[in-house]
Write a protein that binds this DNA or RNA. Structure first.
Length: 347
DNA sequence: AACACGGGGTG
DNA sequence: CACCCAGTGTT
């Protein structure tokens, strides 16, 4: 038996949970109901629902013949209602195809609606003491740390490795205690954030701990590259002042002052003339600036312009700002950066 | 406001 | 197999 399994069983006997309502039985139906309720739902939330559900639907037959509304009422407040619909549906399948007896064959268990490999394994172990392993999110985290498995566990290749690893660690004795320990250990000690490594009996086995990579494992889901957008900002100058535009309240930098943006495919000098009635000429380019938001990256091309001739009258959302004005402190970061760059250039 | 999650569904 | 979804809690 693996050292991990030995230690986990010992840990479970001291720190694990032994007194939960569904742990007092080997009735596959009771185990099944509890496992479905426990999917993505904490033990504390499940306890009351489990008691009321089992009191109202004590057998597979009673569940199968109950009206769906009745089943849903007993699920009301637990969330993920497709679980209840699948449970009801599978109860009817068991009545129809298995003579009302919960199947012991692993493939048959797994083919029931709402039961995947992990839930099928839990029922197999707790009800029938068959050698199967679970692999839910908690267990993935525990095993990824134990063997320092790199890569996001949602990747098929990584998940396959974790299943193989989980199988290889299974003990021959005390299987239910081991599986329960796997669940409880991941839920209470080897947690995603702030795992209690100082209290952990697996320090000697845990490769992530020894490599000081506990906080980095399991690897998080690679987020897709955020989209990139491009804008050109007009920096129109005249007599030591620069033109600013108040942005619409909606959207990025809502209500803040910024440089007027050049419409895509517009030529800056032409836009200055057509939209603002300004005669202007281009000045020397400034370097392109990147700014990262939560959901996109913005490439900002600054276009310094010099006003020629007299200033036109301006609507309220446009105004001239002295280059050294204190208002600059309240501008969006990239705008302030551009102003600073401008001041350091020869203009 | 993004991430995490077990199972289902689709191509 | 690859990919995405629904629905709820957590960070």
């Amino acid at each position: 038996m693996s050292v991990f399994a030995e230690k986990l069983i010992a840990w479970q006997q001291v720190h694990g949970r032994h007194d939960l309502p569904w742990q007092q039985t080997r009735d596959p139906y009771a185990v099944w109901v509890s496992e479905i309720m426990l999917q993505q739902t904490q033990v504390s939330a499940v306890i009351g629902y489990y008691g009321r559900f089992m009191a109202r639907f004590p057998t597979i037959a009673s569940l199968a013949e109950a009206p769906q509304d009745d089943v849903m009422q007993h699920w009301s407040g637990l969330g993920y209602y497709s679980r209840a619909r699948n449970l009801h549906h599978a109860a009817q399948t068991i009545m129809r195809e298995h003579g009302g007896i919960f199947p012991q064959d692993f493939a048959q268990i797994q083919s029931l609606k709402g039961i995947g490999r992990s839930t099928a394994a839990a029922v197999s172990v707790f009800a029938f003491q068959q050698p199967q392993t679970i692999l839910d999110g908690n267990v993935k985290r525990v095993l990824a740390r134990l063997h320092a498995v790199d890569g996001w566990p949602g990747l098929p290749l990584i998940e396959k490795r974790l299943w193989v690893l989980a199988e290889s660690l299974l003990p021959e004795k005390n299987l239910p205690a081991y599986i329960q320990g796997l669940m409880d250990f991941g839920a209470t000690l080897c947690t995603r954030s702030k795992p209690r490594c100082q209290d952990c009996p697996m320090q000697g086995e845990c490769q992530a701990f020894q490599q000081q990579r506990v906080a980095q494992l399991p690897a998080s889901k690679p987020r897709k590259a955020i989209p990139e957008r491009q804008t050109t900002m007009l920096m129109i100058m005249d007599a030591g002042e620069i033109l600013l535009e108040k942005r619409p309240d909606k959207g990025i930098w809502g209500g803040l002052w910024s440089f007027p943006e050049c419409k895509p495919d517009q030529i800056p000098v032409q836009q200055a003339e057509q939209r603002y009635g300004m005669q202007a000429e281009s000045l020397e380019d400034l370097p392109v600036l990147w700014h990262t938001f939560t959901h996109f990256k913005l490439e900002i091309t600054p276009q310094p312009l010099q006003l020629i001739g007299k200033r036109p009258g301006l609507p309220q959302h446009l105004q001239w700002l002295p280059l050294n004005d204190a208002i600059a402190a309240a501008l969006p970061t990239p705008v302030r950066t551009l102003l600073k760059t401008l001041q350091q250039s020869r203009y």
